[in-house]
Design a protein around this nucleic acid. Structure first.
Length: 440
RNA sequence: GCCUCGGUGGUGUAGCCCGGUCUAGCAUAGGACGCUGUCACCGUUCUGACCCGGGUUCAAAUCCCGGCCGAGGCGCCA
């Protein structure tokens, strides 16, 4: 007898969770993976998981065909199978119904056991789980996280498209360091040196010329030597840029966007949020807007004295997070610690029209009004130690009527950490890339 | 990049400080058997581990050195 069956003309009629008492007596075909085999004397309970959930298949040994009994002997947990059978309504079964199989197809036999159970128990370290990430992703918690992620992306797109922003894509292979600062991954582009993009910043700014309101959801790459729970080398960035507005409009936009996202996942992912024991209220608008100066005063009350112009350290942000366990903006940063394209205030040049969107101690997004004057942009490039010549392809656009514009970039994984209550950013990335991990 | 900590069956851990009683314990998983309503089933039983290399010692899971791998913190971070 062959151990592995062919799929042939078998096709799914139902997902596991659709097997309900109302289907009593109906013949169904389901596919999935065996997550549990429990033998109880003359009766065998199989639990089959698919992407929607699980269903019980019950085999009464004395009433079953020889073929099914033989297959039971060689089946191991996590094997993938197909089952044709009759639905039986019975309240002793997990969801009030189970399947009495008439025929089973073994599609693949699992030879190894994953290092964790789908039903709980102690979890191995994240490193071991990531080595077999797609198996790890079958855990209900991971399923919940990525269902939520999917819904968040959909909500962001719906929201922005509804407000007439156009979705664009910009190059991820670039010629020069976009902004200085963050370390780039170099690569060989035919015979030239190139880099992986650390941000779509300059391209999205250029794109306000033809499209005015644009957004991009795509990967960005940073070769930082970071070894923390909130940094990855490759992340998904949600970038928005718009002409004829300032950073105040952008803050209003991102605020509404966050509220829309929270509302959507509360509506559409309530089961998943419950499974993650996560409750998040739709935040009240407007979010708190605290100036950099006000933040320094708050920190001073906590006994932390900072020099004006210093960036906030990890530790000071942690303290802030305890005082502000919510969404809030830090605005009007010192010009010197923000990138060259951020617009300094007209009245006070050492402060710029910028904001960071925070939630507790996590920085989610940063944005601001951009410089639209070529002369000022060149000045700021020089002040940051960058060579205007390298940015010629960008600067030349500013000669053709660059309007005032503003925008933001938001780290999707950071947002996901906040929404799903995860402490490790790796949990919310499907295949995380960090300082030490390049596979799978 | 710097600092700290760690590596014991498939998985999670105990033992390490204070070397011998470790023939390495426990839980879970896996195999076998029993059990007709389980649902992290249960019961009996079996299988299976000291990261690699070197050193100290009569004796190393345990102490020392190096390597590899991992974890956490800091710094860096449009």
């Amino acid at each position: 007898m062959r151990k592995i069956d062919e799929l042939n003309d078998w096709r799914r009629t139902h997902y596991s969770v659709e097997i309900k008492p109302e289907l009593e007596g109906k013949k169904v075909t389901i596919f999935g993976w065996l997550s549990s085999i429990r033998e109880q004397g003359g009766i065998v309970f199989l639990i089959l998981n698919d992407k929607e959930g699980m269903v019980q298949i019950t085999v009464h040994k004395d009433k079953s065909s020889k073929s099914i009994l033989e297959k039971l002997k060689i089946l191991s947990e996590h094997s993938s199978i197909g089952v044709k059978g009759i639905v039986k309504s019975i309240n002793k079964a997990p969801h009030g119904a189970e399947i009495i199989p008439e025929e089973i197809k073994i599609l693949s036999i699992a030879k190894r056991q994953p290092p964790f159970s789908l039903f709980g128990g102690k979890m191995p370290t994240i490193d071991k789980r990531l080595d077999i990430r797609v198996i790890d992703l079958r855990r209900p918690k991971a399923q919940a996280i990525f269902k939520i992620r999917h819904t968040v992306l959909k909500a962001i797109r719906d929201f922005l498209i509804g407000k007439r922003y156009m979705e664009v894509s910009t190059p991820k292979i670039i010629a020069t360091a976009t902004e200085g600062g963050a370390a780039l991954f170099p690569l060989l582009y035919y015979d030239k040196e190139a880099f992986l993009a650390q941000s779509p910043q300059l391209y999205k700014e250029q794109l306000v010329m033809p499209f005015e309101k644009v957004f991009e959801i795509g990967p960005i790459f940073r070769a930082e030597e970071s070894r923390t729970l909130r940094h990855l080398s490759e992340i998904i960035s949600v970038d928005v840029e718009e002409a004829f507005v300032s950073y105040k409009d952008t803050m209003n936009l991102i605020e509404q966007m966050i509220s829309h996202v929270v509302k959507t996942i509360n509506d559409e992912c309530s089961k998943e949020m419950e499974l993650l024991k996560q409750k998040i209220k739709i935040p009240k608008s407007p979010f708190k807007r605290l100036t950099y100066d006000e933040i320094l005063k708050i920190l001073e009350k906590e006994g932390i004295i900072m020099n004006w112009g210093e960036d906030l350290s990890t530790q000071t942000i942690k303290i802030l997070g305890e005082i502000l366990p919510e969404f809030y903006f830090i605005i009007d940063w010192p010009t010197a610690i923000k990138p060259f394209y951020i617009k300094p205030r007209d009245d006070k040049k050492d402060i710029c029209e910028s904001f960071d969107l925070m939630h507790s101690s996590i920085e989610l997004a940063s944005g601001g009004s951009r410089i639209s004057s070529k002369r000022l942009l060149i000045k700021r490039l020089k002040e940051q130690g960058l060579k205007p010549k390298l940015f010629e392809y960008h600067l030349r656009i500013f000669d053709y009527g660059m309007p005032p514009h503003a925008g933001f970039g938001l780290g999707l994984e950071r947002l996901m950490m906040v929404l799903t209550g995860q402490e490790n950013i790796r949990e919310v990335s499907i295949f995380p890339r960090d300082r030490f991990r390049l596979t799978p």
